[in-house]
Design a protein around this nucleic acid. Structure first.
Length: 138
DNA sequence: GCCAACGTTGGC
DNA sequence: GCCAACGTTGGC
Protein backbone atom coordinates (compact mmCIF):
# COMPACT_ATOMS: atom_id res chain seq x y z
CA UNK A 1 0.00 0.00 0.00
CA UNK A 2 1.22 3.45 -0.86
CA UNK A 3 0.61 6.88 0.53
CA UNK A 4 -0.11 10.09 -1.35
CA UNK A 5 -1.10 13.68 -0.88
CA UNK A 6 -3.84 15.43 -2.82
CA UNK A 7 -4.07 19.20 -2.87
CA UNK A 8 -7.23 21.16 -3.23
CA UNK A 9 -8.24 24.75 -2.86
CA UNK A 10 -11.03 24.72 -0.31
CA UNK A 11 -12.99 27.26 -2.35
CA UNK A 12 -12.92 24.82 -5.24
CA UNK A 13 -13.32 21.44 -3.54
CA UNK A 14 -13.08 21.29 0.24
CA UNK A 15 -12.73 18.51 2.75
CA UNK A 16 -16.32 19.17 3.80
CA UNK A 17 -17.40 18.72 0.19
CA UNK A 18 -15.46 15.47 0.07
CA UNK A 19 -16.99 14.17 3.31
CA UNK A 20 -20.46 15.08 2.07
CA UNK A 21 -19.92 12.60 -0.76
CA UNK A 22 -19.44 9.80 1.73
CA UNK A 23 -18.74 6.28 0.55
CA UNK A 24 -19.67 7.16 -3.03
CA UNK A 25 -16.54 9.29 -3.30
CA UNK A 26 -15.67 11.82 -5.95
CA UNK A 27 -13.46 11.73 -9.05
CA UNK A 28 -10.35 13.83 -8.56
CA UNK A 29 -10.74 15.76 -11.80
CA UNK A 30 -9.00 18.75 -13.29
CA UNK A 31 -5.39 17.67 -12.91
CA UNK A 32 -3.52 19.03 -15.95
CA UNK A 33 0.03 18.30 -15.03
CA UNK A 34 1.90 15.30 -16.35
CA UNK A 35 3.78 14.48 -13.18
CA UNK A 36 0.63 14.68 -11.14
CA UNK A 37 -1.19 12.53 -13.67
CA UNK A 38 1.55 9.94 -13.61
CA UNK A 39 1.28 9.70 -9.85
CA UNK A 40 -2.42 9.07 -10.14
CA UNK A 41 -1.70 6.28 -12.60
CA UNK A 42 0.45 4.64 -9.96
CA UNK A 43 -2.26 4.68 -7.35
CA UNK A 44 -3.82 1.37 -6.41
CA UNK A 45 -7.15 0.49 -4.90
CA UNK A 46 -6.99 0.99 -1.16
CA UNK A 47 -4.07 3.43 -1.21
CA UNK A 48 -4.49 6.29 1.24
CA UNK A 49 -3.94 9.97 0.63
CA UNK A 50 -3.77 13.06 2.76
CA UNK A 51 -6.30 15.70 1.81
CA UNK A 52 -4.47 19.03 1.83
CA UNK A 53 -6.08 22.46 1.77
CA UNK A 54 -3.94 24.93 -0.15
CA UNK A 55 -4.28 28.72 -0.24
CA UNK A 56 -5.92 30.02 2.91
CA UNK A 57 -5.47 27.06 5.23
CA UNK A 58 -2.30 25.30 4.08
CA UNK A 59 -2.81 22.20 6.16
CA UNK A 60 -3.52 18.52 5.84
CA UNK A 61 -7.01 18.02 7.18
CA UNK A 62 -8.18 14.52 6.37
CA UNK A 63 -7.51 11.12 4.88
CA UNK A 64 -9.05 9.69 1.73
CA UNK A 65 -8.88 6.25 0.14
CA UNK A 66 -8.56 5.39 -3.54
CA UNK A 67 -11.73 3.56 -4.58
CA UNK A 68 -11.24 3.68 -8.37
CA UNK A 69 -7.86 3.56 -10.04
CA UNK A 70 -6.89 6.00 -12.81
CA UNK A 71 -9.50 6.41 -15.51
CA UNK A 72 -10.13 9.12 -18.12
CA UNK A 73 -11.01 12.49 -16.63
CA UNK A 74 -14.62 13.20 -17.64
CA UNK A 75 -13.92 16.94 -17.61
CA UNK A 76 -11.25 16.53 -20.31
CA UNK A 77 -11.98 16.32 -24.03
CA UNK A 78 -8.45 15.68 -25.23
CA UNK A 79 -8.20 12.17 -23.84
CA UNK A 80 -4.84 12.95 -22.28
CA UNK A 81 -5.85 13.33 -18.68
CA UNK A 82 -6.87 10.86 -16.03
CA UNK A 83 -8.39 10.99 -12.60
CA UNK A 84 -8.82 8.64 -9.68
CA UNK A 85 -11.85 8.44 -7.41
CA UNK A 86 -11.39 8.90 -3.69
CA UNK A 87 -13.66 8.70 -0.68
CA UNK A 88 -13.25 10.36 2.68
CA UNK A 89 -12.03 7.99 5.39
CA UNK A 90 -11.67 10.22 8.42
CA UNK A 91 -10.57 13.60 9.68
CA UNK A 92 -7.09 14.07 11.02
CA UNK A 93 -7.46 14.58 14.75
CA UNK A 94 -6.32 18.12 14.08
CA UNK A 95 -5.04 19.84 10.93
CA UNK A 96 -1.29 19.52 10.39
CA UNK A 97 -0.04 22.74 8.87
CA UNK A 98 2.53 23.31 6.17
CA UNK A 99 4.46 25.51 8.62
CA UNK A 100 4.90 22.57 11.00
CA UNK A 101 6.02 20.25 8.25
CA UNK A 102 8.54 22.83 7.08
CA UNK A 103 9.87 22.97 10.62
CA UNK A 104 10.21 19.21 10.91
CA UNK A 105 13.49 17.93 9.44
CA UNK A 106 11.89 14.54 8.87
CA UNK A 107 9.66 16.19 6.26
CA UNK A 108 12.35 18.13 4.45
CA UNK A 109 12.16 15.87 1.40
CA UNK A 110 8.43 16.14 0.94
CA UNK A 111 7.49 17.75 -2.39
CA UNK A 112 4.93 19.73 -0.42
CA UNK A 113 7.82 21.49 1.28
CA UNK A 114 10.21 21.91 -1.62
CA UNK A 115 8.02 21.65 -4.72
CA UNK A 116 4.92 23.48 -3.64
CA UNK A 117 3.19 23.49 -6.99
CA UNK A 118 2.88 19.75 -7.50
CA UNK A 119 -0.75 18.98 -6.75
CA UNK A 120 -0.56 15.18 -6.48
CA UNK A 121 2.47 13.77 -4.75
CA UNK A 122 3.79 10.66 -3.02
CA UNK A 123 4.26 10.47 0.75
CA UNK A 124 6.66 7.98 2.29
CA UNK A 125 5.54 5.68 5.09
CA UNK A 126 7.87 7.56 7.44
CA UNK A 127 6.43 10.94 6.49
CA UNK A 128 2.92 9.60 6.84
CA UNK A 129 3.77 8.40 10.34
CA UNK A 130 5.14 11.82 11.26
CA UNK A 131 1.92 13.51 10.17
CA UNK A 132 -0.22 10.99 12.03
CA UNK A 133 1.93 11.49 15.09
CA UNK A 134 1.63 15.26 14.87
CA UNK A 135 -2.11 15.08 14.37
CA UNK A 136 -2.35 13.05 17.56
CA UNK A 137 -0.65 15.77 19.57
CA UNK A 138 -2.85 18.55 20.84
C1' DG B 1 -2.47 41.44 -3.80
C1' DC B 2 2.13 40.46 -5.00
C1' DC B 3 5.64 37.81 -6.66
C1' DA B 4 8.55 33.71 -7.43
C1' DA B 5 8.67 29.24 -9.35
C1' DC B 6 7.69 26.40 -12.74
C1' DG B 7 5.09 24.10 -16.44
C1' DT B 8 3.29 24.70 -21.06
C1' DT B 9 2.90 26.75 -25.53
C1' DG B 10 4.29 28.26 -29.83
C1' DG B 11 7.52 30.47 -33.03
C1' DC B 12 11.68 29.71 -35.24
C1' DG C 1 14.39 20.68 -30.67
C1' DC C 2 15.35 25.00 -28.39
C1' DC C 3 13.99 28.83 -25.99
C1' DA C 4 11.34 32.92 -24.96
C1' DA C 5 6.88 34.31 -23.61
C1' DC C 6 3.15 33.49 -21.11
C1' DG C 7 -0.12 31.57 -17.69
C1' DT C 8 -1.00 29.41 -13.37
C1' DT C 9 -0.20 28.00 -8.78
C1' DG C 10 0.40 28.84 -4.24
C1' DG C 11 3.07 30.83 -0.36
C1' DC C 12 3.70 35.04 1.92
Amino acid sequence: MKYWLLKSEPSDWSWDDQKAKGAEGEPWTGVRNYQARNMMREMALGDLALFYHSQSEKACVGIVEVIHEAHPDPTDDSGKWDCVTVKAVRDLLRPVTLAELKDDPRCADMPLVNRPRLSVQPVSAAEWAVIEERAAED
